[in-house]
Design a protein around this nucleic acid. Structure first.
Lengths: 187, 187, 187, 187
DNA sequence: CTCTAATCGAGACGGTACGTCGCGTCTTACG
DNA sequence: CGTAAGACGCGACGTACCGTCTCGATTAGAG
């Protein structure tokens, strides 16, 4: 058996869904979401316009699915390292993964998907914070989470706009690490 | 007197323009810009729909004017203090002003205008950075500016969503100060 | 002998077909054909949407079969009497049959099926006229046939909209007879 | 003054409205209303699709306006004569008018507009009947009106499908007269 | 009594028309 | 004679049905 549950998803659905994701990603590289029409996405995906709605209620929904997917993948990558309390290594892992998919993440972080990506990362961060955050702090936990996510996004987005190789993975990981550590410093 | 030389602006234009600004601000308190239609703005402002276009090409243009105005006002307030190298006092002044116009700034920072406000603040910050920034730093200047603006926005936006008086002006100014100082620390 | 050999129709087909006929009839009592969707018919009949097309190409086709059936039954009833040249009795037979199935014929004559019913009756009437019609007449035969059918329909449809028993079978048969006779009067 | 009431209808509205009427009439000569799409009407009229809805809610509404117009014009023509109790002359007038606009009336009576035309004529006939109809009659007044309208339509529709000149105006008027008289005969 | 072939359920999909909404331009008639 | 009011072109929206197409699952009736 190829997987424990044979949930039997229609192959056509999978195909269409992938086509939509790819199409949206491609378009996001060129313009923000609000300038992309559903008609356009469908055309690029090679499916009929009305078929789009059989998969997603709005283009934002499609984007959300996309964003959640990617963020989950990214976080899954660095959580194990984080659990070993080695934040530095976690950031290196993260940056390496992103650097390996520069085109994709450029679209995700600097294009029209940024908002959705941010929301998804916020959601996850809040979960993590609920477990690990200290009670007393010079900055309220909730705000600290927002700031962390913001700094992460700013840094990655900035990095991705730079010419590749201009800043090494280690350098960026170092910056990220320092930024995040600063926020969790006591006093 | 400033009358004879200056620009002879038709009183009706001024009135219409103010009505539009006020209308947009009012609407922004309730929903993001993309959900606001020009027809709506015009209706609230009490002017005819097509008249809107004689003042602004798009609703985004109107918002930009609004945002630039307010940011300029805010910055003008704290620049003098900054020039005395007392960043702490500058943040207190800033927070005081914002706290005095909580409703307005809630709309500007947490509503649909946030993007435009951010852009405007970024623009100004880059100018300031060009003059004052150190050459060598653990974090590239350009990125530092982005982070500074981000942190400022996150903090203020978060503050404005809290119940008034939950966090004192001084406390918030302190947080802002610490965040910004962190970014400019050497090493 | 066409019975034992011929056509062994699958019991499932018969069942589905009857369900469709009944469903359409039921719907026709409430609204005209064009407001009835195939999905609706299928739902009422308790069969799957796509199964409909395995029986009829369009909903109009289903209706035509229905209409032809009923008209044939009606005509078969009065033809024998007509052959005895007793038009009066033929109309009484016709009206009696219709009165006995008031609900059904209301749907057929005043609902969305009216057009199909009319077409079918026209078809049959033209056949009859071809055999029995006089050559010379104050009104062209073709037109006379149209008028006959029209008058029949108007009268029956009107009758069926009246409260039952408001007009007796004999009275209506009398009216029908007079109308039709008038058209065939010489001079 | 060019007209007693200066209702001042925008010239563009008039133009568009006429274009729509003409377009629909043209299309009705070729196929029934239900096979005509609003998009088609708009295209033929040379206006944008969405503009159609600024004039009529549905294509049926447009047709109704058309039908009412024409029927009113037709009736206005023969009412004066009818008032002089000369039904024969009234029918001649009617047939003459129709014969002079054969193409138009073919579309109206044998095309997709027939239903609307019929409704409109029925409406007017019922008004006339309310004033002139006898109480006691071998056929109920309401039914008689229906039959009259039906016979009129059948006759005219049939006439219009015949080659022009195949049946003279007088001949058709004679038939119409006889049919209608029959219905009003006592006994 | 099985086996084979049809009917039927299920539903994804391409497609056409619908009617709505908002944009921005351009015309008009009114003060 | 300039400006408000608004008709219009335009294009995306989301919806409803249409009819086609594969799949499997029954299930009937012939061998």
């Amino acid at each position: 058996m190829d997987s424990e549950v044979s949930s039997k998803v229609d192959a056509r659905i999978v195909k269409t869904d992938e086509a939509l994701r790819t199409a949206l990603l491609g378009l996001l590289e060129r313009k923000p979401l609000e300038q992309i029409t559903i008609r356009e996405i469908a055309a690029v995906a090679g499916i009929h316009y009305t078929t789009f709605f059989r998969h997603h209620a709005t283009k934002e929904a499609l984007l959300d699915h996309l964003a959640a997917d990617q963020i989950d993948r990214l976080v899954a990558l660095c959580m194990p390292v984080l659990d070993q309390l080695d934040s530095r290594a976690a950031f290196v892992a993260q940056c390496t993964y992103i650097n390996d998919h520069r085109k994709l993440w450029s679209a995700l972080l600097t294009g029209g998907a940024a908002g959705a990506m941010r929301e998804e990362l916020l959601r996850l961060s809040r979960e993590v914070a609920r477990e690990r955050a200290p009670k007393e702090h010079w900055i309220p936990v909730e705000l600290a989470v927002n700031c962390t996510v913001s700094l992460t996004f700013e840094t990655l987005a900035w990095w991705l706009t730079q010419p590749a190789e201009a800043f090494s993975i280690e350098k960026v990981a170092e910056i990220l690490n320092r930024l995040v550590v600063m926020l969790s410093m006591p006093l």
